[in-house]
């Protein structure tokens, strides 16, 4: 009998710890499929963050480094600059990438480091149990914005792709979602492009994936997907904010 669906080789055969309905699992799979399709597992080094995906080092079959909170882009720089022929990617959440690691994120893009960042934006701190993130929406209730995020008190969310698209070092900044099968197919296309860019030496590529956190949002998985469509996508419009290929063409 012909196998039509299987675990990608780049994904380890271990149970993932993610909550039911969390979209981390989908994105893990997409990254692993891309690594398989490009045939680069043997030369890839992944950098795991601090956040819900902290254990990503146990899930990806390539060599992995666990970084301090927010520092994955700096660690990736150290690896890539001393091993330019390897493929280096970071996998980071919104607190890691857009709060404590903002400086590292901006400067890795400004330098045009030839690496790939997979950025999971679920508008909340998942690992520590639902606190306000830099991407938490105005009015959104979290354990540290219990009356809803008030712009006057907690400030405004950061649109990462828009911000990084202004930097000359950025080759690709795209925001995708994984809320529908069609969106998943498109997300994989962009993730593959972000890795291919690195293989082609084009410079810094980031794919932001809008994700759900049913547990900390306090919703069922299907309600969470609908909440993402109704609230996150309007604030964080999907699309490609910068693509040097498109600019050249």
């Amino acid at each position: 009998m012909k196998t039509v669906f299987d675990r990608p080789h780049a994904l380890c055969d271990v149970p993932l710890h993610y909550c039911p309905g969390c979209t981390h699992g989908i994105v893990h799979r997409l990254v692993a499929e891309v690594i398989d399709e490009l045939g680069v597992e043997g030369k890839t080094i992944g950098i795991a963050p601090v956040g819900c995906s902290v254990f990503a080092y146990n899930y990806f079959n390539c060599d992995m480094i666990e970084a301090a909170h927010g520092r994955a882009p700096a660690v990736a720089t150290g690896v890539k600059r001393t091993h330019p022929d390897n493929v280096v990617f970071t996998y980071q959440g919104d607190g890691d990438l857009a709060a404590i690691g903002t400086a590292e994120t901006v400067h890795v893009a400004a330098r045009g480091e030839n690496i790939t960042i997979i950025f999971i934006n679920n508008a909340i701190y998942g690992m520590t149990g639902g606190q306000m993130a830099p991407t938490t929406l105005p009015g959104q209730v979290t354990t540290t914005s219990p009356y809803g995020r008030d712009r006057k008190i907690q400030g405004n969310p950061i649109r990462v792709c828009e911000m990084l698209s202004t930097l000359d070092g950025t080759a690709l900044a795209a925001r995708v979602s994984v809320d529908t099968p069609k969106a998943v197919i498109n997300a994989k296309k962009m993730i593959k492009k972000a890795f291919q860019n690195q293989l082609d030496g084009k410079g810094f590529s980031i794919v932001e994936v809008l994700s759900t956190c049913p547990t900390n949002w306090g919703m069922s998985p299907t309600d969470a997907l609908q909440w993402l469509r109704d609230n996150m996508i309007p604030y964080y419009p999907l699309g490609t904010y910068k693509d040097i290929d498109a600019q050249e063409a």
């Binding site: 720089t77 150290g78 400086a103 590292e104």
Partner: peptide, 23 residues
């Protein structure tokens, strides 16, 4: 390579990355 980082924090983590990669 001599790379000037954006901060001491970044510099030590770049050092960590390079060390992890056996450099």
């Amino acid at each position: 390579l001599c790379l000037q980082a954006e901060s001491e924090v970044a510099a030590i983590n770049m050092t960590l990355g390079a060390a992890a990669a056996g450099t």
